[in-house]
Design a protein around this nucleic acid. Structure first.
Lengths: 148, 148
DNA sequence: TCTAAAGTATGATTTTTATCATATATTTCA
DNA sequence: TGAAATATATGATAAAAATCATACTTTAGA
């Protein structure tokens, strides 16, 4: 479904949402170690996310990445758009370029409603809300968190 | 979601379900032209599908591919398993290897029910049923069919 | 029995995605 | 003011997916 890039990006941002603040920036090195993702790949991704205002950063000692209040207002969908492009949830399951409610492929009827609902959820809920809910529900972002 | 390979495979099989029979085999060339897919790639795929008894074939003049009654009893899920592997609907949306109802990632709650329902549909409905329904509903398998 | 029309088998190439590496620019703090 | 810690920029490499190409085998039909 999503590219690794998008997956890493989402996990990083949700991680920053619960662990960082303007007073507590986190370096790529630490993020990559905590999330168990390739560091230089993540560095590139975070750059891209920073350029697109989804993440904030500061150079130098005690620098690093963090989420500002504004950043927390963004959505998962914003992240996906930024990395994989805005067509991700608009693509036909069987790869046809014109599949839609009027001219559906054979899988359209079963797949389409789900895509719509997931897209809505990803578009309408903010990163901040997602992070809060995740804290309540106790979700996890890396396998490390599963070790007892 | 699916690889191009799986998409082509599903489209080919649904195409054969409505257009072929033991008495009317269809060559890769024709299938590829009708579905607008790369011919040699499709040839490889059809081989794999034939090996795995999802499609039937005959060599020589008037040979080609077709679906037997048995082939029609298979499911979309069988095709996906054959090409992309059986983990396709079992993978965590954020790429974690252990994500499940007990230890969910932040996206699990929203994504998981949909995956389950789609998987069920794909697993429980036969190719034959899919093809019949598609005929009734008037779905399409290639953009060509949209041209007036 | 020869020829042409098919599938079958295998490997080469291209494209995309993912990953790795290295050099540069800033900034804090001693 | 200079050294170390950080992000930034860019390009190189590796791996996977998709595509292309070529030679071989089987079979119907003249």
């Amino acid at each position: 479904m999503l590219s690794n890039a998008s997956k890493y990006a989402i996990r990083s941002i949700l991680y920053l949402a619960t662990n960082s603040s303007e007073d507590h920036k986190i370096s790529v090195k630490v993020i990559a170690e905590d999330l168990e993702t390739p560091q230089s790949f993540l560095a590139k991704l975070l750059q891209q996310l920073t350029t697109n205002k989804l993440v904030s950063s500061a150079k130098g000692p005690h620098g690093g990445f963090y989420l500002s209040a504004k950043n927390r207002k963004k959505s998962l969908w914003d992240i996906i758009k930024c990395i994989d492009g805005g067509e991700k949830f608009n693509q036909c399951f069987l790869g046809l370029s014109e599949c839609n409610d009027v001219n559906p492929c054979p899988a359209h009827a079963i797949v389409s409603p789900f895509k719509k609902q997931i897209l809505e959820n990803f578009r309408d809920k903010t990163i901040g809300q997602y992070a809060d809910e995740s804290l309540e529900k106790g979700t996890y972002l890396t396998l490390k968190e599963l070790e007892i």
